[in-house]
């Protein structure tokens, strides 16, 4: 079984476990329409790892999938990448891009369960593509923010106008970003965690 130790990078760092510290894994979802830059964002800030999934064929998905066309396919495995950022103190942050197509909706429930929150990436030229994700997280009560990915040459919009176009609640953060940039992607994630932290401390304060 020695080969399992040949790649310790996938394991929780030993330093994290010294002193009985409990390792922790957290996840943030990256959502948004097709081609909006989800994979680009995950790639610019984290180590990308491949995942094979075919859960749509198990009973978990019964009643959700439209099976039209599926029966003809010889391979039904769906590839899905995720990102991994190893931090100090035994903490690993995972970034999961939510699959865009409607037939993968059922996967969102598992992905959203226990997530820190979600970043909805938006493209000002196709804002309507973000509606499905925004509706989903609003309905579910998952903390989320909107990050407008400003591609080269893309029309610059006033954030206030975007907010109105997306009909966002005032407390949902909206930032402009360029997800090809590591620093920009990092700022988005920081804004995400700050937002959730503010919500958490506000909720704790209200209970006191």
């Amino acid at each position: 079984m020695d080969y399992a130790h040949s790649d310790t990078a996938v394991h929780v760092p030993a330093t994290a476990r010294r002193g009985g510290g409990q390792p922790t894994a957290a996840k943030i979802l990256i959502a948004g329409g097709f081609g909006v830059g989800k994979t680009t964002m995950v790639g610019s800030i984290s180590e990308i790892r491949p995942l094979r999934t075919e859960e749509m064929l198990t009973d978990r998905s019964t009643g959700v999938d439209d099976t039209t066309g599926v029966a003809d396919k010889t391979s039904t495995t769906v590839a899905m990448d995720f990102g991994r950022i190893t931090m100090g103190e035994g903490l690993i942050l995972y970034l999961f891009g939510t699959p865009g197509q409607e037939r993968f909706w059922f996967m969102w429930d598992e992905l959203a369960l226990g997530a820190v929150g979600a970043v909805v990436l938006a493209d000002v030229r196709r804002l309507a593509d973000s509606f499905a994700a925004i509706d989903y997280f609003e309905d579910r009560g998952t903390p989320f923010m909107v990050a407008v990915n400003c591609f080269d040459g893309a029309e610059r919009k006033d954030p206030a106008d975007v907010r109105i176009a997306l009909d966002l609640d005032p407390d949902v953060p909206l930032v402009m970003c360029d997800v090809r940039s590591r620093d920009s992607a990092k700022e988005v994630l920081i804004a995400m965690v700050e937002h959730v932290l503010a919500r958490t401390t506000a909720a704790v304060g209200a209970r006191r």
Binding site: I85, M87, I190, V193
Partner: peptide
């Protein structure tokens, strides 16, 4: 965990 995460990201 959130505070650790924020610290780690920064």
């Amino acid at each position: 965990v959130l505070r650790k995460l924020l610290h780690g990201l920064r």
